[in-house]
Nucleic acid binder design. Structure first.
Lengths: 231, 231
DNA sequence: AACTTAAACGGACCTCGGTCCGGATCGTAT
DNA sequence: ATACGATCCGGACCGAGGTCCGTTTAAGTT
């Protein structure tokens, strides 16, 4: 029998540049989370590995998570780790998967203003603040999991978020280049920048949130021109 | 005698969060470029290394630039490469130094609209377009030279650009949080994003430039609300 | 010209991410 | 129950970045 492939697999050349088509909102996060279609031993090992990795992070921080260490801690061969998660980034991403799904559910289907029901600009505001907070919470892991420059914007979780922002923007600005504006907005929320501003420059999270609000206002053409007040 | 240190050296904890103070505009690009205060042999080797690296890039692309290969091609020990440039990122950055200085001179002291003399919003527009073009030109090298998430915003070249944008923004928006807005703008110009949009999504450079213009207009509150026209 | 010393040199060495392949396992078809 | 093939496992192996330290050398000093 055929077991479903589980690595990102053979992405097509790349995102349909701007496409309106594209399936329903609730798209992939990779099949990463499903132990279901794995062979029994594989699923067991996968769980052991994730647990081991989490433990290592708790004990030695993200740097302590070396592939060999994880393998050893899970009493598994090194090859197994790579077979399952592809590479280090894949492993770290898998660790973030749970929280990512929760977040995704919240902004796609949860209660307003984050979820559907509120006007788009408010949802945008809520989205940014929520994402900022989540990023700060798991900052170390997020940083360690950041893929190289050529994968960064191809990661499923990121794509879903981007698409969400595009949809919201289109409701507010039907005539603008929402695809690119969404990039602009989301760039504000990446782990690297948050790390720099919060940790290295010592800015309080509130200032980032205020800036997000201000930015959304400026871009959508709503709201005040002056320094932001986080509504 | 004491030779000046040449590695980035011991950066203080980090950028004064927002500081008004701060020296004249023309700040560092690291002392990287000056062979002057190096011992004769060191300067010679530095040159040999840069030349070798450039040759390797031309022949095998950025991936071909392995530290050992460079050392070998320059007929120099591996340790020497690291002593001089600190790490791979440092070497690649040094390769970009020349073009960076040219660019820096252009936007700090060149003719308008890029240089001083034009109104700030126009200068911003010109700055973005120029930087976009430069980034596309040297994209491979820029990508390869991108530092890890925790250094990305501490790189001297980046700091200078950021500060420039801040100053321009302040002239246009005295009351806004220009420091953060500058981050927003510059995020649009990073190599990783440009790579994604241009190479992976196939967008024409013109669209990025149009988006930049649109973005500047929206943020400064000038110009049209509709889809951009690159003035 | 001989002396001194801070700096530069070089290459052995370490670590870690990633690959490979022979052999062990699981799930299934008969 | 048995046999079979796809899948998985493990750990030896490789390449590349980065460190270390004993040796060499440029450049002032007497």
């Amino acid at each position: 029998m055929l077991y479903a492939g589980l690595m990102p697999a053979a992405q097509p050349p790349f995102p349909p540049p701007d496409s309106e088509l594209f399936g329903p909102d609730l798209i992939q996060l990779g099949t990463a989370g499903d132990d279901s279609c794995l062979r029994a031993d594989a699923a067991r090992n996968r769980a052991k590995l994730l647990e081991a990795a989490a433990r290592l992070i708790a004990e030695h921080g993200a740097d302590g998570v070396t592939m060999e260490a994880v393998a050893a801690a899970a009493e598994v061969g090194k090859g197994t780790v790579f077979r399952r998660f592809g590479d280090r980034t894949g492993l770290l991403t898998a660790l973030l998967d749970h929280s990512e799904r929760k977040f995704q559910a919240a902004y796609l289907g949860g209660p307003p203003p984050l979820g559907p029901g509120a006007p788009p600009v408010e949802r945008l505001h809520a989205f940014g603040c929520a994402l900022l907070r989540r990023t700060v919470e798991e900052l170390d892991l997020q940083l360690a999991a950041e893929p190289g420059p050529d994968r960064r914007f191809g990661v499923p979780a990121w794509r879903v978020q981007h698409r969400h922002v595009v949809l919201l923007l289109r409701q507010a600005l039907p005539d603008a280049d929402c695809d690119l504006l969404a990039h602009v907005l989301m760039a504000q929320l990446g782990p690297a920048l948050v790390h720099h501003l919060v940790r290295q420059c010592g800015m309080p999270l509130e200032r980032l949130e205020a800036n997000w609000a201000d930015l959304v206002a400026r871009i959508t053409g709503t709201g005040p021109r002056g320094p932001a007040g986080c509504t």
